[in-house]
């Protein structure tokens, strides 16, 4: 799980152009939206693209995103639950 979390941090930084953020600054349990990384609605769409592009996971119902994208850890757990890690 830790390896997947570290990999995800790098992918999120690259996909969302978080040029001023370093992987070690991302707390895997901090909220991705609102506080924490302070992502916005366009970033949410980019995270959906990231899951499809890198892990072949399609999120059919955008409402699921609220749970999946709570934090880097919840993203990693979801990827693992889909058997795609």
């Amino acid at each position: 799980m830790d390896a997947l979390i570290e990999k995800l941090k790098g992918q999120i930084i690259e996909q969302l152009n978080l040029a001023e953020v370093k992987p070690e600054e991302i707390n895997p349990d901090s909220p991705l939206f609102g506080e924490g990384l302070g992502l916005d609605s366009i970033d949410a769409l980019e995270l959906i693209v990231l899951l499809e592009k890198h892990y072949g996971i399609k999120i059919e119902d955008p409402k699921d995103g609220k749970t999946i994208f709570q934090s880097v850890r919840t993203m990693a757990e979801y990827i693992k639950s889909q058997g795609k890690s």
Binding site: L16, N17, I42, D43, E46, V49
Partner: peptide, 9 residues
């Protein structure tokens, strides 16, 4: 086919 929302905007 991976259009980027962040590019599209």
């Amino acid at each position: 086919y991976f259009p980027s929302p962040a590019v599209f905007v």
